[in-house]
Amino acid sequence: MLVGGKLEPGETAAAAASREVQEEVGLIRTADQLTLLGRYDEEAANEPGWRVSSTIFVADPLTDDERSTLEPRAEIAEIRWLDLAGDQPTDLAPLLARHVVPALRPRSPIGKDPDSCAPHPPPSSQASSEPTRPIGRSPSSTCSASASAPPPPTPSAP
């Protein structure tokens, strides 16, 4: 799963992603520092029969100071970095496994910058958002955040 949540009334998806990243891992990023990766619809993790619609953003690499202050908050149990060049863990949420990781792979700094956590090449005005469930840093990690828009998910047909 990724850091993310539902939009508040009148809130844009980028503003929600910015808010959720701060609430869930303590990272401060403004909406204008985020760049849209894509909008995806997928079956919800841990909620059989439900779907989630998410807007995913990416941002520039974290500084060393920012990396050192990240901490799981709210409903986040752990922070885990993914090696986009390698095999992915089998416990990834469907949205992450089927849409986000494949979309990040061509943008990642795989083999370019061992300390990066952003798309390659990094856009000039992006910042960073974090994957939920991180564990250690990998040379080809990429950061993202999601914001789910109303209406609430509807059950999929049986």
Rank of each mutant, 00 (worst) to 15 (best):
L2P: 04
L2Y: 09
L2F: 12
L2G: 08
V3I: 15
G4K: 14
G4L: 15
G5I: 15
L7S: 13
L7D: 14
E8M: 11
G10K: 01
E11D: 04
T12P: 05
A14C: 02
A15P: 03
A16H: 04
A17C: 15
S18Q: 06
R19E: 08
R19K: 09
E20H: 10
Q22M: 15
G26W: 00
D32G: 15
D32W: 14
D32K: 15
L34R: 05
G38K: 05
D41N: 10
D41F: 12
E42K: 06
E43P: 02
A44I: 03
A45Y: 11
N46K: 15
E47W: 10
E47P: 08
P48L: 13
G49R: 02
R51M: 03
R51F: 06
R51L: 02
V52F: 06
V52H: 05
S53T: 07
I56Y: 00
F57K: 11
A59D: 11
L62C: 14
L62R: 13
L62K: 13
T63S: 12
E66F: 08
R67K: 09
S68Y: 05
S68L: 07
T69R: 04
T69K: 12
I76V: 14
W81F: 01
L82S: 01
L82Q: 03
L84R: 01
A85S: 11
A85R: 09
Q88K: 09
P89Y: 10
T90Q: 10
T90D: 13
T90Y: 05
P94M: 05
P94F: 00
L95M: 09
L95V: 05
L95R: 04
L96E: 07
A97H: 06
A97E: 05
R98L: 13
R98V: 10
P102V: 03
P102D: 05
P102F: 00
P102L: 02
A103I: 03
L104N: 12
R105V: 07
R105W: 06
P106T: 06
I110H: 04
G111A: 13
P114N: 09
P114I: 07
S116E: 03
S116H: 03
A118Y: 06
A118W: 08
A118L: 08
P119L: 12
H120L: 02
P122M: 03
P122S: 10
P123C: 04
Q126V: 12
A127M: 05
S128I: 04
S129H: 10
S129E: 13
S129K: 04
E130K: 11
P131C: 09
T132Y: 04
R133P: 06
P134G: 15
G136E: 01
R137A: 13
S138W: 02
S138T: 07
T142V: 14
T142W: 04
S144T: 14
S144C: 15
A145C: 12
A145P: 07
S146I: 01
S146A: 10
A147F: 02
A147K: 04
A147S: 07
A149T: 13
P151L: 00
P152W: 14
S156F: 01
S156E: 08
